[in-house]
Amino acid sequence: MSVDANTVRRIAHLARIAVSEEEVAPLQDELNAILAFVEQLGAVDVSGIEPMTSVTPMAMKKREDVVTEGGRARDVVFNAPETEDHYFLVPKVVE
């Protein structure tokens, strides 16, 4: 499988990365080089094989239902580019 220029643009948009027109062709080449490299996996017989879900078999740890966090809105917004009254600000979203 290989990607065309339009696929590169679509993927870039899905990934929310602006890609200029000049960047499309080199990206396309690089992605295709990687896809060509992974192509060999297609030849492997994987019938009846379970996909790996966890590399070390163990039971998932769970938390008790207790409130242990919160009350640190200042820390939460500390690194934010734009805030007001402990809200994060973003360009207006139209629903």
């Binding site: 992974v38 996996l41 492997v44 994987v46 094989i49 379970e50 996909p51 790996m52 879900t53 590399v55």
Partner: peptide
């Protein structure tokens, strides 16, 4: 074709 297959191959490697 890609992700699930790769995770199956991971099972084989392990």
């Amino acid at each position: 074709a890609y992700y699930v297959r790769a995770q199956k191959i991971r099972t084989l490697i392990k």
